[in-house]
Design a protein around this nucleic acid. Structure first.
Length: 585
RNA sequence: CCCCUCGUAGUUCAAUGGAUAGAAUAGGGCCCUCCUAAGGCUUAGAUGUAGGUUCGAUUCCUACCGAGGGGACCA
């Protein structure tokens, strides 16, 4: 419809140029937008305002000229000039109602579009360290990434969803050591738990499972383990203390048994995260192991690539990437003087790997605490001869948790956090998903657990689901009143849908494909959430004002057809957000 | 000190540079002999401060104030 109006305006301007009223070289940038206020018609263009300067006339005069020369179109019932020079278009009821044909024909495909043009996009998100269960802080990134993936798919992109498993770093060794100490305790070998170890109950659970499986095979005496360890905090250095325990574990257990221990922690937590996310309706196509990078020499290869391009230098025994040449604040170490590559080096290799897999666009969803990495990662990509523009980093601001007035402190290490699982149990999957994804990612958000738990009516997701369920119930209970719904008859009688509420609802339904395209291009699923809220509101208003189960068969069929189309769009939108569309509530 | 994000009704959030800044909740007042009142109607209420860019700024730029997060040969 927008396209039609644009072309009408184009034709009018062309006519005016031919008649000499406008200069032939006048360039018109024709924008047509949906009006916010129905008094301004259905579509509006500001073209006259933008032409005012070039044409040296006042905007209202130009608008009048354009209106006078618009070709006739049955879809447009009326045009008006308003305000400073807007041209408002009123769309006929007939043209509006045709959207119901599309919706019912396309079903769950309605709203899909091809703005993605089959481009391959990878979305990497969550990627939390597998050192403990996900907490509510991860929930936002999970909800956003999953919804974005669905949205981009609907918009015609080929999407791969990936989780980067940080299974290579020191934190994983700390986890292994933590599991070991809990395991030893089960064997009666107790020693003080390191202040820097992972203290959560889940570590004990992993130890218990491990103990059940391997018996005493990993046992060493507490005296042996704790002999000559550097002091823990507060007297000593907690980092040196935990590192010494890790070294001790590797010495005493040997490589094979240490790997067994390590894998027990990693596998258990990764599987748990996988289940946790699946229950949150978040699934991945690929779980990418950081360790696979070093096993396949990809890190060395990435560093070599930077070296070949002359962006690496040696200083103080370490290898540095000259990222300042690409706008970074300081140069970054990729290989330490002890020969170990840094986390950043893994990141470079990982991103090189991603681009080598042939994605047109690579999207990283990162927590706001990672913003400092954007510049350096993009610098590395550029230095390796890749187009850094193809890496899109979306930062997700933290959700600040409240319990009523009180702020909930969050810390993984101390084990004092609200897990995502607890949130789901308390608030519910649908409400949590919707709550997270209703805000745009840049917005800092307050998450009040008390509010979310205590009274679920405060959450608009139920309002939308309720609209869906209402329609389902109406259709399901027709038989009780000896009534039928004939969709073909309904579509043949769409001209009967002339109430304001009906026209508003149809117009809202017609907007859905635009919302999908717009939300996808902006990477903003929250647009869909807000749209659904509005759509549900339109339906509730309609429902309260007019009856659908009525004796007049023609009108009944038409109204039920409209309701059914509304149900379809609500279901399609909720599906994108990973929220259920219940048939009754 | 430097960098990033954000400041909009009492509260939680919207608003491709456009017309009278929208919802939801909380507060006033109404609507179930009627398809689900988890609903509807109605009323009241907001752009942190100061400049700039222009026909027009919540939106773009600068400074300041306030909130959150970064600034390792840690991951």
């Amino acid at each position: 419809m927008k396209q039609l109006v644009v072309s009408l305006i184009e034709q009018s301007i062309a006519t005016l140029k031919q008649s000499g009223a406008f200069d032939t070289d006048l360039q018109a940038n024709i924008q047509v937008e949906n009006t916010r206020d129905k008094q301004h018609g259905d579509l509006a263009s500001n073209v006259a305002l933008t032409l005012a300067k070039a044409a040296r006339r006042n905007p209202r005069e130009i608008a009048q000229m354009i209106c006078d020369h618009l070709p006739a179109a049955t879809e447009v019932s009326k045009t008006e000039i308003a305000g400073p020079g807007f041209i408002n278009f009123f769309i006929s009821q007939d043209a509006t109602a045709t959207v119901l044909n599309s919706i019912l024909e396309l079903g769950d495909q309605y709203g899909q579009c091809q703005v993605g043009a089959d481009q391959h996009v990878q979305i990497e998100f969550v990627s939390a360290n597998p050192t403990g269960p996900l907490h509510v802080g991860h929930g936002r990134g999970a909800a956003y990434g999953a919804s974005l993936g669905n949205l981009l798919s609907a918009a015609g992109y080929k999407v791969q969803r990936e989780y980067y498993v940080n299974d290579a770093g020191r934190q994983m060794n700390i986890l292994a050591a933590s599991v070991w100490l809990r395991y030893l305790a089960l064997e009666g070998e107790t020693m003080p738990f390191p202040s820097n170890g992972y203290q959560g109950e889940y570590v004990k659970d992993i130890a218990t499972a491990l103990h059940k499986r391997v018996g005493s095979n990993l046992k060493h005496s507490a005296a042996e383990v704790s002999k000559d360890l550097p002091a823990d905090a507060p007297e000593g250095d907690k980092e040196a203390h935990i590192d010494a325990i890790i070294d001790r574990a590797q010495q005493l257990l040997g490589d094979e048994n240490y790997q067994l221990l390590f894998a027990a922690g990693l596998d258990s937590i990764r599987d748990d995260i996988k289940d946790d996310l699946a229950d949150f309706n978040v699934t991945f196509d690929n779980w990418f192991s950081e360790r696979s990078l070093s096993q396949e020499d990809q890190i060395e290869r990435a560093i070599k690539k930077l070296q070949d391009n002359d962006h690496i230098y040696e200083q103080d025994g370490a290898l540095w990437f000259r990222s300042t040449a690409f706008g970074d604040d300081k140069d970054r170490v990729v290989k330490r003087d002890n020969g170990q590559t840094t986390y950043f080096a893994s990141d470079i290799a990982y991103h090189l790997n991603k681009f080598e897999r042939g994605f047109d666009t690579v999207i990283n969803i990162w927590g706001a605490d990672h913003h400092g990495y954007i510049t350096r990662v993009k610098a590395a990509l550029t230095a390796m001869g890749l187009d850094a523009e193809r890496l899109v980093v979306k930062l997700v601001q933290f959700a600040i948790l409240y319990r009523g007035e009180e702020r909930v402190p969050m810390s993984t290490r101390s084990g004092s956090f609200v897990t995502l699982r607890e949130l789901r149990d308390e608030v519910g999957k649908d409400a949590s998903r919707f709550f997270y994804v209703t805000r745009k990612t840049e917005q800092h958000m307050d998450f009040d657990l008390e509010l979310a738990k205590s009274d679920s009516k405060d959450n608009p997701v139920y309002y939308i689901q309720y609209a869906h369920a209402r329609i389902c119930t109406i259709l399901a209970k027709l038989a009780v009143e000896d009534m039928t719904w004939d969709q073909t008859q309904g579509l043949a009688n769409l001209q009967l849908l002339s109430e304001t509420a009906e026209i508003d609802l149809m117009q809202q339904l017609a907007l859905y494909p635009e919302v999908i395209a717009s939300a996808a291009l902006a990477y903003e699923p929250h647009q869909v959430a807000h749209y659904l809220r509005d759509l549900a509101g339109n339906f509730h208003t309609y429902y309260n004002a007019h009856r659908m189960k009525i004796d007049d068969a023609a009108l009944r069929n038409a109204r039920l057809t409209l309701s059914s189309a509304t149900r379809q769009v609500l279901a399609n939108g909720l599906q994108l957000l990973g929220v259920a569309a219940p048939e009754r509530m």
